[in-house]
């Protein structure tokens, strides 16, 4: 029972913290650009405002358009609750492995793209087609980089993989570095951050995520944006889980949990700060360069797989 409670609290924590994380990144970026920024709470204020507002629907919108925000939000929340943030042995992460996680995210993406096409505007269809093109390249790369880790843990289950990483002796593993590099590239692409997509733009011909949700308003838009923020936090937590799991609680004691929570928040701060720095320093890529970027991530993940077989299994 206790584990279920912690699982529930952890999921709520991720959902509540997601807008704050997005606000933190936005504030850091603003400071780096010599602006004051809207503050860490700004995404929450936006969400509250949007939820209170009236929903305006296009005349030709079908039920898919109305359903999509709920499906996208639920699938993303489900995915986020599969990822252990503080306690390693949570009930949901024991039942769902990384492949299920990717599938849940793919479900969310599928409905997002459907909703983009449903209205029939040029922007929606364009955004949906771009999203599908890029995800077809990003998903195999993500699975491949997770498989590099699964190979040494002999499991695709997140809990088993984290336990393996926690108990493994500290050795130099080049394959892990490859997997990390590929995973970071994919995380940036999947969340529509700067080299691939600009999360702050509303009127640009190269936008992807914003183009799909351009027709949404009111609480539907709030759910879509919230889901995107949760996805960002999910990927950050996944990176922490797979590559820096040290300090995570293996039992449900109060002390261990508090320590794990503090460490998780500290690691999260570090990752988000790096994201803000990278976004300030980099320029957005040309849209046609994005497939090359993603296939680069795939190549790096594949190299990780090969070096694992060549350098680590035999040795």
């Amino acid at each position: 029972m206790n584990a279920f409670l912690i699982q529930f609290l952890q999921a709520v924590l991720l959902i509540v913290l997601a807008p704050l994380a997005a606000g933190f990144v936005a504030t850091c970026k603003a400071r780096l650009q010599n602006r004051r920024g809207g503050g860490v709470m700004q995404p929450w204020r936006n969400l509250r405002k949007l939820i209170a507002k009236e929903v305006v629907m296009a005349e030709h919108a079908s039920w898919i358009f109305r359903f999509a925000p709920y499906v996208v939000f639920t699938a993303t929340v489900m995915a986020a609750s599969c990822v252990p943030a503080v306690l390693v042995n949570t009930p949901l992460s024991l039942t769902a492995d990384v492949i299920a996680l990717v599938a849940l995210l793919a479900l969310a993406r599928f409905f997002l793209a459907l909703a983009g096409m449903d209205i029939g505007t040029a922007f929606g269809g364009m955004g949906a087609s771009r999203e599908m093109t890029f995800s077809a390249l990003a998903e195999p790369a993500m699975l491949m980089s997770v498989f590099v880790l699964s190979l040494s843990a002999h499991s695709t289950n997140l809990t088993t993989m984290i336990n393996h990483a926690l108990n493994a002796p500290l050795v130099l593993q080049p394959s892990l570095a490859f997997a990390l590099a590929a995973m970071v590239m994919i995380a940036i692409a999947e969340n529509g951050r700067i080299p691939i997509d600009n999360p702050t733009t509303h009127l640009e011909l190269t936008m992807i995520h914003e183009a799909m949700i351009l027709e949404y308003s009111g609480r539907h838009l709030a759910l879509m944006e919230w889901a995107a923020m949760i996805k960002l936090l999910l990927f950050a937590t996944l990176l922490i889980d797979l590559f820096l799991p040290w300090g995570m609680a293996t039992d449900a004691g109060i002390l261990a949990l508090t320590l794990a929570l503090a460490l998780w928040v500290a690691k999260l701060f570090g990752l988000l700060l790096m994201l803000a720095l990278a976004e300030t320093g980099l320029a957005k890529m040309r849209l046609f360069e994005a497939p090359e970027y993603l296939s680069g991530a795939f190549v790096i993940a594949f190299l990780g797989l090969l070096t694992h077989y060549m350098l680590e299994v035999g040795a």
């Binding site: 080049p174 570095a177 490859f178 680069g296 190549v299 790096i300 190299l303 070096t307 350098l311």
Partner: peptide, 23 residues
């Protein structure tokens, strides 16, 4: 063992640089 790992890591880096050169 550590030296072995170091040489392996350098070899992996070498492979990465060769790919980067090509890309």
């Amino acid at each position: 063992a550590f030296l072995q790992q170091l040489v392996d890591s350098l070899a992996a880096l070498m492979l990465l640089v060769s790919f980067a050169l090509l890309a």
